[in-house]
Simulated assay, not measured.
Amino acid sequence: MKFYILTLFPEMVMSGLNTSIIGRAIDNGYIEIEAINIRDYTIDKHNKVDDYPYGGGAGMVMQAQPVYDAFKAIVEKAGHDLPCVYLTPQGRTFNQSIAKEFAILDEVVLLCGHYEGIDERVLEEIVTDYISIGDFVLTGGELPAMMMVDAISRLVPGVLHNDDSTVQESFSNNLLEYPQYTRPEEWNGKKVPSILLSGNHAKVEKWRYDMSVERTRKYRPDLLEQ
């Protein structure tokens, strides 16, 4: 799968994604990530990509032209139309189900806004989906884009050493994941639940399911209503 990330800060995006599991997935060819600097496509002699909003108000708005030209350059390079996701608090809230939607795609463009946003006219031209990561405001779309890449990439076959890792984790069945333990068997006076040491796989699975339900009921009861 290939991610194209349209941003004013490509170095921020790539430095965060070139590490750990995602970095290894890139090295092993399971995913590709290309960060495109929108500023490279401005026609302004001072490399400006923003201007004051019509109607007044605080802040600056990213101009349509450099965003449009950057996107069209990607499409021309790919040789076909591409889905384009705009990261914005106004979008549908990203979750595991949406991550699965995107994980079956071959390519996707993630558009990162900045300042007070992007000129609405170019959004109407190129954006196919609007995604939010929650009801709060950030300084730009780079962190949400990185979060999306991470969540989606984990679902791409081969990215994780064990593809079963995605089956029983949080949100896979509208349940939070059960508690996890590792060595030593006792730490700071706290022992690993004896059922996990029993070797009885059926009882272990039942315990894990019960713990998932209990944890979901305590922390995210809304998931049980879905």
Rank of each mutant, 00 (worst) to 15 (best):
T139Q: 14
Q226I: 05
Y178S: 09
L87G: 01
K100H: 10
M1Y: 04
V213Q: 06
D44P: 02
T166E: 07
G141F: 03
L17C: 12
M148W: 00
Y86F: 02
I33P: 08
G79P: 00
Y86H: 04
G56V: 06
V67A: 07
W187H: 11
G189A: 10
K206E: 15
I152Y: 00
D81E: 13
I43H: 09
L176M: 11
L196W: 05
L110K: 02
Y4F: 05
D27W: 01
E76N: 08
V127Y: 02
Y4D: 14
Y130C: 14
P83E: 15
R154E: 12
Q226M: 06
G56D: 10
Y41W: 05
R121H: 12
N162A: 13
Y30G: 10
S15C: 06
P66E: 14
G23V: 09
P10V: 11
D135N: 12
A103R: 03
H201N: 12
L6F: 09
I195S: 08
M60H: 09
Y130Q: 12
L196T: 12
Y30L: 07
T93L: 02
D69A: 01
I118N: 13
I98T: 09
Y52L: 10
K218T: 15
A70F: 02
E185K: 00
A64N: 04
P144H: 02
